[in-house]
Design a binder for these strands. Structure first.
Lengths: 228, 228
DNA sequence: GATTATTAGTGTAAAAATGACACTCATTTT
DNA sequence: AAAATGAGTGTCATTTTTACACTAATAATC
């Protein structure tokens, strides 16, 4: 190893994930109990292994908790204040993830004492994990207003009223359903199915699927949903 | 130190900055010559010191190259592919910075063999620095379309035609000057001064200043300038 | 089997924002 | 005095957004 490298201090590198879920009513974050001496609610996290990339490590750690693969995962921010972890200096790269709660295997999570918390009713969190969650909510709101990522929180087949409830939950507001469906449908990203939702309402709402192939991340924007 | 920490591998942590500047005509990036064996153009970078936060370190490194403090600095992304630096595994947290080229002290940069490059005419860069620049340009375009950050690239006093040239350069387009000034002025963030620019045009354009205090990061958006 | 309750689904009109487009103004140079 | 140059502004047509209320379909109830 060359001198200019040798002289440098190395640091521990952790990954922490803000895992969002939607239960049909409110937006939730999945937290686990952990801690060195006392147990505190915290984000799911783990250490970077020598052979892994950052996102790969975040995906592995997410899998360990949820049993899920192929979930939406986006780098949020690197947190590195000197004393954020009071025991050993650790840089944490936070990721946020959007999962379909129906797919989530709760058996696996028992090992971690995991629990879903409403974003409006969070406990005190370990270290700077509270800041991470705040930033993740901000990012989710910002991004979901312009890109079709909300669908990652819904089943593959969903109804317009379900989608509206999701956006209502994300932005803590109540969109007008006429304007909402016009705006959503005008993106031409939704495919109406021939099937109606049963059991929830008397009339039953049509199911839709999203056609993400139509959406080109590079060029297209999606919507502007940030309410005034 | 506790066992669960001890067992973990530490990594080197670097910071690299994409430094944007605007010379009145085109958008530039400041690059330096560096490399272990051969000299390659690269981003300005450095190592995280034990007593520093990430942004603090990025600001220090930026100061070492440019002599500038209080510049716009925003975390871009953490890059951590296992072999991105082929010599020693290094995680790099990239920041992007917007500087006023007039303030930039070129004497200091001679030490680093620094040079401004047009974003449309970049050399081959060290490691994954090319990816970093690509991402930074994307982020700048995305953000400048909705937040008043372009002003960081202009002198404190600027004219509307100067601002239009900046946006033209950022988006590689040619906005209509009537629509542009209407849109910009409708934000109510610009303060018209009583003074005209001399020497550039016969008539002279009025100078403006931006009132960033009026702009509340939290709630307000700014503009949507992404051209169709 | 008629009525009622419940959620789904749709249309319109007014206001605001956007995009396309061309002339006059102020000043310096010739 | 005329010409040249970039600065500055207004209008109209189109699109997008917002506010707002009724009918439709079905299941449950009487």
């Amino acid at each position: 190893m060359l001198d200019q490298y040798k002289q440098q201090h190395p640091y521990l590198l952790a990954l922490d994930s803000i895992i969002f879920g939607f239960d049909g009513e409110s937006l939730k974050v999945l937290l686990v109990k952990r801690g060195v001496e006392e147990q505190t609610w915290s984000l799911m996290g783990g250490w970077l292994q020598p052979n892994e990339g950052l996102e790969q490590a975040a995906a592995r750690i997410l899998f360990e908790l949820t049993g899920l693969t192929d979930v939406y995962l986006e780098q949020l921010y690197a947190f590195g204040e000197p004393h954020r972890d009071p025991i050993v200096r650790t840089i944490s790269v936070a990721y946020f993830s959007l999962v379909k709660v129906a797919d989530y295997e709760s058996k696996i999570s028992e090992t971690f004492q995991a629990r879903w918390f409403s974003i409006y009713d969070l406990p005190i969190l370990l270290f700077d994990h509270g800041d991470m969650v705040d930033l993740a909510i901000k990012r989710l709101r910002y991004k979901a207003a312009q890109h079709p990522i909300g669908f990652e929180l819904l089943p593959d087949k969903f109804t317009i009223p379900q989608l509206k409830k999701l956006y209502d939950a994300i932005y803590n507001t109540n969109f007008d359903k006429r304007n909402f469906s016009r705006k959503i449908l005008s993106t031409n990203l939704l495919i109406k199915l021939d099937e109606k939702q049963k059991g929830f309402s008397r009339r039953g709402a049509y199911y839709y699927q999203v056609d993400l192939a139509k959406y080109k991340q590079e060029t297209d924007s999606f919507l502007n949903f940030i309410p005034t």
